[in-house]
């Protein structure tokens, strides 16, 4: 591979110095074999501008920290290799979320708020018996729950979502999927109607206008479109049967 000189065009803004307006800044870097945006951004920080803000934690595409707009498209920076991009790479923070600085955004507070709002925990009257055996579950059911539970709350689906960009309260694909996860789980004793009180609105299931950008770019490849359809189907049933 011929060595390329990459140009990074990076969004800059430090809320602690509001007198300096947001801007794009260019950095150049020689590409190395197997270079990811994790490696590239750390090199830029260490060699060129140590004030550059961005977030990585696992650097293995499992923790959801590093979502950003890569050439305009939301994605995880740690698993994006420069070899798959052109010589000019534009990096912007994810929209919708509050900006911490440069490429760093506050996804944590956003997701926590929605976890509270949708009561995303198992609701049960069963009391745990430390001396008893675990309740049984068949493996395919465990797998279906697991599939929905794989969401890493990276916010890419939210950043890509037309509705979330316009409507502050929209719960987005991530939480429609989360709702599916609890609907599938036999341990959650909430009546479906109870769940739909929270999500059967324009901020919930009906907010989605079906552009489905989320489905294309979920880094975990969760079938978000299918999950949304499942939640809507369940809802229709509840409406019909009235329970």
């Amino acid at each position: 591979m011929a060595e390329r000189l990459l140009t990074f065009d990076i969004f800059r803004y430090n809320p602690a110095t509001p007198e300096i307006p947001p801007r794009m800044q260019e950095f150049q870097l020689e590409e190395t074999v197997g270079m990811s945006l994790f490696i590239a951004l750390n090199r830029i920080r260490e060699e060129q501008d140590p004030s550059l803000m961005f977030d990585f934690v696992c650097r293995a595409a499992v923790c959801g920290s590093c979502g950003m707009l890569i050439n305009g498209r939301p994605g995880l920076a740690c698993k994006t290799l420069t070899q798959d991009l052109g010589e000019k790479i534009t990096l912007m923070p994810l929209p919708v979320f509050k900006l911490v600085g440069d490429l760093s955004v506050d996804t944590g507070v956003w997701f926590r708020y929605l976890n509270v709002r949708t009561e995303a925990w198992i609701h049960t009257d069963q009391v745990f018996d430390p001396k008893g055996l675990e309740e049984r579950m068949d493996n395919p059911t465990a797998h279906r729950i697991y599939e929905a539970e794989r969401c890493i709350e990276c916010g890419c689906c939210i950043g890509a979502c037309a509705t979330a960009n316009m409507r502050e309260d929209f719960i987005g694909a991530a939480f429609l999927n989360r709702i599916a996860r609890f609907l599938i789980d036999p341990r959650d004793e909430r009546p479906a109607a109870h769940i739909f009180e929270v999500v059967g609105t324009d901020e919930g299931v009906f907010g989605c206008i079906g552009l489905m950008a989320c489905d294309d770019l979920c880094p975990m490849e969760i079938p978000l479109q299918g999950q949304l359809a499942y939640v809507r189907r369940k809802m229709a049933l509840v409406a019909l049967r009235g329970k």
């Binding site: 925990w121 198992i122 049960t124 069963q126 745990f128 430390p130 008893g132 055996l133 675990e134 309740e135 049984r136 579950m137 068949d138 493996n139 465990a142 797998h143 729950i145 697991y146 539970e149 789980d185 341990r187 959650d188």
Partner: peptide, 18 residues
């Protein structure tokens, strides 16, 4: 064992014996 089972009670989708 108590810890594993309690995590199941709290929602962990452990893989199951077939």
């Amino acid at each position: 064992p108590v810890a594993v089972r309690q995590m199941s009670h709290w929602g962990v989708p452990w893989s199951r014996v077939v």
